[in-house]
């Protein structure tokens, strides 16, 4: 249960970094695919979604970690989902109150965080076995890794579909005298599947080279 005190900082940083690259939820573990694909038509909703996921992930990891000794094995998944559902409701109401237009765009994908595999996976694989601090660090690492992936994917799609990133025009479209032709398919489901597929391929190339 308790490791020696000097090994702890190393363990913490290792846990944090694992979520960012080695076990990046979207790119390496292929978890949480639906939101990854659905909200990445532009950077702003992707970032909002990422923040919601970080919030829910941290909160649910805290609660699950605290109640890990009380859980009955056959009821644990139900307990996880109920905990997550409660926090997602909080996040959803918060968005509706303070970011109504984002809430409009994200629509049912905010409540769908409940069934986002990342959160259940972290509750099951990490929080139900580890102490509070490790669980929080793990949640932050995983959440940030997920958010970064979302933003990169969204940036590529938004740039190719509209020539803008974060709604700031980067390329002049052909209709206004530039060379860039808007690639509408990138804003549609096709673009999401293709871009993510190619990104995963790229990640595979990079990791093969390292090994």
């Amino acid at each position: 249960m308790s490791s020696s005190s000097e090994a702890k900082p190393a363990l913490y940083s290792q846990t944090l970094l694992a979520g960012l690259w080695r076990e990046n939820p979207a790119l390496r573990l292929l978890l949480g695919m639906c939101p990854t694909l659905a909200v990445t038509a532009a950077v702003k909703p992707a970032l909002t979604m990422g923040c919601c996921v970080i919030f829910v992930l941290v909160c649910s990891n805290i609660i699950v970690s605290l109640m890990r000794n009380l859980l009955k094995p056959h009821l644990r998944i139900l307990m996880f989902t109920l905990t997550i559902a409660a926090f997602v409701t909080v996040a959803d109401l918060f968005l509706k109150a303070y970011q109504p237009e984002m809430s409009e765009i994200l629509g049912p994908y905010v409540p769908l965080i409940i069934v986002n595999c990342i959160i259940i996976c972290r509750a099951e694989a990490c929080a139900s076995k580890n102490g509070l601090v490790i669980s929080i660090i793990d949640a932050v690492g995983m959440g940030v890794g997920f958010t970064l992936t979302l933003c990169v994917l969204a940036a590529i799609r938004e740039l190719l579909a509209t020539g803008a990133i974060f709604e700031i025009q980067m390329l002049t479209p052909a209709t206004e005298g530039g060379w860039f032709v808007k690639w509408a398919a990138m804003g549609m489901p096709v673009g999401a599947f293709l871009t993510l597929g190619l990104m995963l391929g790229l990640v595979n190339v990079v990791t093969r080279k390292k090994a």
């Binding site: 398919a185 549609m188 096709v190 673009g191 293709l194 597929g197 391929g201 595979n204 190339v205």
Partner: peptide, 23 residues
């Protein structure tokens, strides 16, 4: 299939083409 695209990447690309068809 190219080595780096085996598994999930090619599946996603296929799904993309299918969704194009369904459009």
């Amino acid at each position: 299939v190219p080595e780096c695209l085996k598994g999930a990447p090619i599946t996603l690309i296929t799904a993309g083409l299918l969704s194009l068809a369904f459009m």
